[in-house]
């Protein structure tokens, strides 16, 4: 384990696109440690990001924009006064994650970069697509928790709860290496298995560090919520979740963001669903339109068909909550 003191130094310790050092970034370790214990990754070196100063703050600027450091813990995010007041969607998403113990050490950067939970990916002996094998076992095997949208050839779902909420807020991320720095919309940060490199879920380059998350100032009047269905209330990943931002003017929807979690290999923004309801009042018919449009194109596997009625149910509950 090495303790870098700057992002540049951390980046130099990481492998490059061409390969090199077998090293992994370590933040709170809540995902990485499980991967290490299950021998899904076996790096020679752990680069402990926690020794890099300045990445653990939540800052609001005068323009009302929010910058969240990668090392901010989920608990700190959940409890930050401005987030609680202005961005309930984000505080609710953070609060829905895992257990109090895990939230108190898990970080924002680690949460956004965590790896899939699919049974087969996590089973060391199953050489699945995500581990460089040739088959997605979930496709024909046990797939209750797998994707109904955007799947193929791998059917994982992205496990992060922060991601759908942040995508709904139009968040950007800063990615830095020792020689480069760039910003991406979080929405574009995530990839589908069909986009190319199946061994990763993001566009993060091997020597890049996600340093900050930026949330733009939201237009006035936003109502927002993150509704997550957990099979086990005490701590669980989403069977399905809905991140919803809604702007109403005299009862009419002037703007909305709908992002689904737990149903696709990346946070699933449904522009179609958003457009379908613009200008409408929030009533049973509108909700029905949103439900249909959001799940347009869903393809179910043998055991995950329930995610369609479940997600529709959550959408209704989310609209009811905000209207």
């Amino acid at each position: 384990m090495v303790l870098p003191t700057s992002v540049e130094e951390a980046s130099r310790l990481l492998p490059t696109a061409e390969g090199g050092a077998s090293a992994k970034l370590l933040a709170g370790g809540q995902d990485l440690l499980t991967e290490l214990k299950e021998h899904l990754v076996e790096p020679d070196t752990l680069v402990n990001l926690k020794s890099v100063p300045g990445l653990d703050t939540i800052e609001w600027n005068e323009a009302g924009e929010l910058t969240i450091g990668a090392l901010v813990t989920l608990t700190d995010l959940e409890e930050e006064a401005g987030v609680v007041e202005k961005l309930p969607i984000l505080s609710e998403a953070a609060a829905s994650i895992a257990s109090a113990q895990i939230r108190s050490v898990g970080t924002v950067g680690g949460n956004l970069n965590q790896r899939p939970r699919c049974w087969y990916y996590r089973a060391e002996h199953a050489p699945c697509l995500k581990k460089g094998g040739s088959e997605c076992y979930a496709f024909e095997g046990r797939n209750k928790y797998n994707a109904i949208l955007g799947g193929g050839p791998s059917y994982i779902v992205h496990p992060s709860d922060l991601a759908p909420a942040l995508v709904a807020l139009g968040a950007k991320v800063t990615l830095k290496s020792h020689s480069t720095s760039r910003q991406l919309l979080l929405e574009d940060f995530y990839t589908l298995p069909s986009d190319g490199d199946i061994l990763t879920e993001t566009r993060l380059k091997p020597d890049e560090v996600l340093t900050h998350v930026h949330i733009p100032k939201q237009r006035a009047g936003m109502r927002s919520t993150y509704l997550k269905f957990k099979e086990r209330a005490s701590y669980d990943f989403a069977l399905s979740s809905v991140a919803l931002c809604l702007w109403l003017d005299q009862g009419q929807i002037t703007r909305t963001r709908i992002v689904l979690g737990g149903v696709a290999p990346k946070p699933w923004r449904t522009v179609k669903g958003e457009q379908a309801i613009l200008g409408k009042r929030v009533d049973a018919r509108t909700i029905e339109m949103a439900r249909e449009a959001c799940l347009d194109g869903a393809v179910t596997l043998s055991e995950n068909g329930f995610k369609i009625p479940l997600t529709k149910g959550l959408l209704t509950r989310a609209f009811q909550k905000l209207a």
Binding site: W119, A126, R142, E231, R232
Partner: peptide
Amino acid sequence: HDADLGYMLTANLEDYKIAG
């Protein structure tokens, strides 16, 4: 279980869910 591979997919306390 995966009926094809024979593996138990829930051999841990995360996937074998117990009330909390």
